[in-house]
């Protein structure tokens, strides 16, 4: 019934197996034995075998900033289109005119923003 072709007892055995494995993993996370051989290098951040230089959370340069700004605006715009697309058959051609105008009006600044964002000096 649940999985056609697989007898239910087999499915239960599989469930028991997987849940046992999951339980072992969760217990393994919480029951951690005391470190038998602590060394100062063991807990250092990994930097390809070199000794880690400087703090791990330094200030990184956020590149590609124009793309991030565009994302903030146009992700929301894309959401607005879902309400229109869902009711497209009911709205028909006449009801879609405001949405099409909305798309065209927003595409023009998108093109200009892309023109700016694709220039390396603005990254």
């Amino acid at each position: 019934m649940v999985a056609q072709g697989i007898p239910e007892i087999g499915a239960y055995i599989a469930f028991l197996f997987v849940s046992t494995v999951a339980l072992v993993i969760v217990l393994r996370l919480f029951i951690t034995p005391k470190d038998p051989r602590p060394t100062p290098e063991k807990k250092k951040p990994f930097e390809s075998g070199q000794i880690a230089a400087g703090p791990g959370r330094t200030r990184f340069i956020i590149q590609y900033y124009p793309y991030l700004l565009m994302f903030v605006v146009y992700d929301v715009v894309a959401m607005f289109l879902f309400a229109w697309g869902l009711n497209l058959r009911a709205l028909g051609a006449s009801g879609s005119v405001p949405v099409l105008v909305f798309i065209v009006v927003l595409l023009i600044p998108l093109g200009y923003a892309l023109h700016l964002a694709n220039h390396r000096e603005n990254w």
Partner: peptide, 12 residues
């Protein structure tokens, strides 16, 4: 939920 299409089958 526990067998198919749920947790057990997802893990396997």
């Amino acid at each position: 939920i526990v067998l198919f299409p749920g947790l057990t089958s997802i893990a396997i």
